[in-house]
Design a protein around this nucleic acid. Structure first.
Lengths: 129, 129
DNA sequence: CATAAAACAAGAATAATTCCTGTTTGTGAA
DNA sequence: TTCACAAACAGGAATTATTCTTGTTTTATG
């Protein structure tokens, strides 16, 4: 039985993703960690992010402006995406996920997650306009 | 005042997207129309899809397996994404979008759309397992 | 210590999407 | 109808996020 080996860089990548609510890209994580880990490679960030997704330690919140965004907070909550500045902002959505999930089970599918994503213009961009 | 010029290919692209509930990719639309329009180019498909998104005639349902998927049905409804076969399936979600939208307005954002996307394993893939 | 699997850096490869150039087509006005 | 000009286009090059490959290093274990 093979196990996942320890890796300091992996630990740092997960901690970095968990340290923010900005829903970063792989590239951002790489740039953030580069100073402390000068020999970090972008491939390592991608590979570990893949492992985290598989293991349910992080979740993808979708692709915004061509780049995948990640969330270290795996508790169910909504995401608001600003179409001006591309910010992804958490919000406390009032959605009953179990209802949607039950509905899907009723028609034969197995629902493992229900995401709520809203699109529009964020507060900051509205005020700047 | 410039207006959008008529284009037979554009019309065909929109009709093709509206003709299915499979939430196709740009590539699929291109392959489907190629026989009837042998000189169609993929760039034209992408360009017109961009115009349709801008004009609200279609909507993106996100990126699945690296490819953006589109929906010609712009009425609010949920999408279920199978993580095995990558199918995107419409479903009638029980979500009160106006509640979520109001909540977002309350905290200063302008919500233009609220999407509900579920992930899991579809009926077909479950039965095949 | 010795071995084997896992993790890695560096960079090449892949592939979806966008952009550029020269040409053709649609449209509104004369 | 003809003209002028913007819009649309094909074809292909460019861009770029992500994945993959290779050779090396690290981790865990007996």
């Amino acid at each position: 039985m093979r196990t996942r080996n320890y890796s300091k860089k992996r630990e740092a990548i997960l901690a970095k993703i968990r340290s923010t609510t900005t829903h970063p890209t792989a590239e951002w994580v790489y740039q953030e960690l580069k100073p402390e880990y000068p020999d970090l490679s972008l491939g390592t960030v991608y590979r570990n992010i893949g492992l985290f997704k598989e293991g349910g330690e992080i979740v993808s919140v979708g692709t915004v402006a061509g780049q995948e965004r990640f969330d270290g907070n795996v508790a169910p909550h909504g995401h608001f995406v600003c179409r001006i500045c591309r910010a992804v902002i958490d919000f406390d959505d009032p959605v009953e996920r179990s209802e949607a999930a039950t509905h899907l089970e009723d028609i034969g599918h197995r629902a493992e997650r229900v995401d709520v994503t809203a699109y529009g213009i964020c507060k900051v961009c509205l005020e700047a306009a």
